[in-house]
Design a binder for these strands. Structure first.
Lengths: 191, 191
DNA sequence: TAAAAAAGCGTAACAGCTAAACTTTCTAAG
DNA sequence: CTTAGAAAGTTTAGCTGTTACGCTTTTTTA
């Protein structure tokens, strides 16, 4: 990697670090974008060149490839496992893996939990993969790629993390969400 | 109704009318809040006193009582009908009723469809009723009011309208969504 | 080593939104 | 009927996120 790219990455990291620190110290809404740029010793315009999606994006620096993981969860699930179950396990695994990996992951989650704008943004990031996930599910089930049922399952799956966040017991809550998606609402069957 | 209240309502209506007209003529993002205030012959601060939730709220003037209708759909459903089915029918009815009632309803829907900010806002308005709906469902099922399964069903139900909007055939798409919520994803059962 | 590419800068501006202090209009109680 | 106060509205001024523009500096590459 050349010097240019290294410096670029350093500036970006500087911004993300400053942002996360200031946000966790004083709260997302109490910290302005000018201040973050100052803390990273960079101009505001530079900040927005690194994070064109805006202030919220500063918090979601690590943009790992979740889409591939989602599609793989469907495609490569063990025999006898349902699609909802595969997605369920994949989400569980993703979460606990990151808790162990990143030491600041707890702060990160707390920040998101307490900031509506960030919750929204996180949700939108997940939902970006709706199309790809729906297509994978449809392919697996032998249905057209835009089948509404597949889209619904994809959509609800991707929304599940945001939905259970804030429960006393998010793990159990997630189980219940996938009970619903896997088995439907118990009681009189719909016509 | 006194003169004061009448004038207030007139101003509000003036603003909503101007906004809807300008938005449909030129597109949501091409019309600024100053211009709307001008068109309604009112100051910008006045506009925001009438619509404290911001520019998006100008489009959703009619805030009828959907929450009561949702809760009633669960509570007063005919015997033998499942909760998802009751909610399904209620959403269908709500939609077709408003198509017949309001002549500008089509413009209104098209505007929302083509404007991400408005879609988001519409979704948030629906989700405001999540708590009440979840409580009604839980009460009906004899579960604690904050049961995660009930919350999930409420959440997914309220999200269904936004989800099917934009399909070739929204009606059928809605049927599929409620198939999923009522019967679960077909195939190997989840553990 | 010259020139293209890219990172960064400062200024200026726009959009949405809010606070503050002040004027007009309506309501209602004495 | 009058008058005090509530409520609607106005002006001004400003904050925050975000972008455009034109310029300088650094790094790459031909």
């Amino acid at each position: 990697m050349g010097r240019r790219e290294r410096k670029k990455a350093a500036t970006r990291q500087s911004l993300a670090d400053a942002a996360l620190r200031l946000f966790t110290e004083r709260g997302y809404d109490e910290v302005g974008v000018r201040e973050i740029a100052d803390a990273a010793d960079v101009s505001v315009t530079t900040l927005f060149k690194h994070f064109p999606d805006g202030k919220e994006a500063l918090v979601f620096d690590q943009d790992v490839d979740r889409e591939a993981a989602l599609v793989a969860a469907v495609r490569e699930r063990p025999a006898g496992q349902s699609v909802p179950e595969a997605l369920h396990r994949m989400l569980q695994g993703e979460h606990s893996r990151r808790v162990r990996t990143d030491p600041r992951f707890d702060d990160f989650l707390r920040l998101i939990d307490t900031t509506p704008a960030l919750r929204e943004y996180a949700r939108r990031m997940w939902l970006r993969h709706e199309h790809a996930l729906a297509a994978a599910i449809a392919d697996d089930a032998g249905l057209p790629a835009d089948d509404p049922g597949c889209r619904a399952l994809a959509h609800f799956t991707l929304e599940a993390p945001a939905l259970v966040r804030g429960s006393h017991d998010p793990d159990t809550a997630l189980d219940r969400v996938f009970d619903l998606l896997g088995n439907g609402w118990p009681g009189t069957r719909a016509g």
